[in-house]
Write a protein that binds this DNA or RNA. Structure first.
Lengths: 236, 236
DNA sequence: AAGATAAGGTCAATGGTGTTGGCATAAGGA
DNA sequence: TCCTTATGCCAACACCATTGACCTTATCTT
């Protein structure tokens, strides 16, 4: 840690860059997101980001202490976007479903960024806010604390895990665009039917399915199971 | 792609390296795994791997066309280890549970490697074998094909997604070893109780829970939900 | 057994990366 | 208006993956 990073709110002397740009944490994160979208996850580097901002790469170290910290900031931004405009209705199952799909969607809308950040738990404000919201929904719904914590954990980790997985797949295939459906079809068709009878028997269904995310299905199964537990608790 | 890579089974002239080591795909992958375990995921580089093997880094390109291909080979090796010794008993729920935990476990036993490879679907032999097995279990259990495909997809992606997520967490905290339990405890304790009442109320439970993987819980919920569907199908 | 062929190991070089210490300059407080 | 120092810039370091040319020697052919 060579140079101390000044926290954003304490910045006073905003000196414009040689090319006239006035930097800020926000500007840097947004530019990084744009670069990730346009040039892929390998396309983000201190040098390129610096160039895009019209600033020397080393200047970034005045704002983040290392690329890793920048990555975390990007993750926080994505979580924030997922929560924007989300509101609790009081129907716990609906609310959780909505939140899950939003998180998943926010990450998938920036797959290249998601690849870098999902799985990195940041502990930053907006992430904590999401945790608090989920716990609140479950406890209000009537789950006893131990149960609520268990389900909260499964729910949030499953959402992030699928977001990362699906984003990874998207980030990989996006370059080779041509994939649509036909790719899986041919992948499965290539396998010898006698050696892989079950795959062969469901070839069509598989090809149609594998182009979508399994997250909505997994999410609904998790929520259904939670509801069953809740009813069992009420009954017994 | 400058130099064509000779497939392993077609290799004839195995010339020992200057330091006397006879290379092979297997040896390289195993050495890479060992290096990942010992020096972390950032510790694997062509140069270091070459050094560890007693060979010039460029030699690796005779075996894999790029570090990316090596990564895929490592992933295939991990899946293979998960399947080693696994056998179907005929009780579908037990079998799937076992397989899921094995996959998850195999990845977690090499977290640094898992970070690199999970999420990269390879389509290599052992991976396809796992897919066929899962589909077989579900269809034999009585799930109609569309249902079987849906659940197969959710199951396998859930396993891989959690493996990647948990491995990532493990790979990160391993360097700073000291994390055990106390870290989460203090993380939650630091939050103002009036702003985060639900977190505050369940602080203890959370601290105890967050050190474990949510996968077993999520897996059981998915399987429970699948069983409910199967019974509904049989009844109606 | 001798020679030809080319697989496979090595060398050197290219253009990329994150990161740092020192320096210069201008912003904002006095 | 002057001083302080935050902040941008420069040059350098050590690392990275990858490649093309070269050389050596294991294997095949005759």
């Amino acid at each position: 840690m060579a140079k101390p990073v000044v926290p954003e709110e304490a910045r006073r002397r905003r000196r414009p860059t040689r090319q006239g740009v006035v930097l800020s944490e926000r500007l840097i994160v947004e530019t990084a997101l744009r670069m990730l979208r346009e040039h892929g996850s390998a396309g983000l580097s201190a040098r390129r980001l610096g160039a895009a901002l019209g600033a020397d790469p080393s200047t970034l170290y005045r704002y983040f202490d290392g690329m890793d910290a920048l990555t975390l900031a990007i993750g926080e931004e994505l979580i924030g976007r997922a929560l924007d405009g989300w509101a609790v209705t009081g129907q716990w199952r609906h609310d959780l479903r909505e939140l899950g799909l939003r998180i998943h969607g926010a990450y998938l809308s920036h797959p290249q960024a998601a690849v870098l950040t999902a799985g990195r738990v940041t502990g930053r404000p907006r992430e904590i806010a999401a945790d608090e919201a989920v716990l609140g929904i479950l406890r209000t719904a009537g789950f006893p604390d131990p149960e609520a914590v268990l389900i909260y954990h499964a729910f949030i980790d499953q959402s992030l895990a699928f977001a990362a997985l699906d984003a990874g797949a998207l980030a990989l295939t996006e370059p080779s665009r041509s994939s649509d459906e036909g790719q899986w079809e041919s992948t499965y068709a290539r396998l010898p039917a006698d050696e892989y009878p079950h795959i062969a028997a469901t070839r069509r269904l598989l090809a149609a399915r594998m182009n979508h995310s399994a997250y909505p299905v997994a999410l609904d199964m998790l929520l259904a199971s939670a509801e069953a537990r809740l009813q069992a608790l009420r009954a017994g």
